[in-house]
């Protein structure tokens, strides 16, 4: 499954970058979303995938029995998901404010600070 996901992540990155290269700010924000998701998945997959072994310790034991998925990348990705949401909500509101003032969804019309 990992190679398949590697290809999928590559496509996700390509889509994210394509969107970030647009002039429209909304597309830029969508690109940002794609990028953060792709990056999360990249970290998750890089550590290797495990089927049916969540990193949980059964009640009454000191350590899980058998192989479990690597918990560290999961912790990292969890943090990243939440932060990405924070950044995104900020960016979205910023876009809205910008649109209210400039009345344009075009980065090229926001080149100076006096609009």
């Amino acid at each position: 499954m990992e190679p398949l996901l590697a290809v999928a992540i590559g496509i996700l990155f390509a889509a994210a970058i394509y969107m970030m290269l647009r002039r429209s700010i909304v597309k830029l924000v969508i690109g940002l979303m794609l990028l953060s998701n792709a990056a999360n998945l990249l970290i998750f997959v890089s550590a290797g995938l495990t089927r049916g072994g969540p990193p949980l310790v059964p009640q009454g034991l000191a350590a899980p029995q058998g192989a479990v998925a690597d918990p560290l990348p999961q912790a990292l990705v969890l943090t990243a998901i939440v932060i990405a949401f924070g950044v995104l909500s900020f960016a979205v509101v910023l876009v809205r404010r910008a649109w209210e003032i400039v009345r344009a969804d075009d980065l090229d019309r926001m080149r100076d600070t006096d609009t």
Binding site: V7, G10, F13, A14, I17, Y18, L21, L72
Partner: peptide
Amino acid sequence: DVVVAGLSGLMITLLMLSVLAGERLPR
């Protein structure tokens, strides 16, 4: 932009494949 984005995506995929093929360090 399609070319730039496509090449970047391809690079990510190749990087990931070589990471997956590589040795794992002690965790």
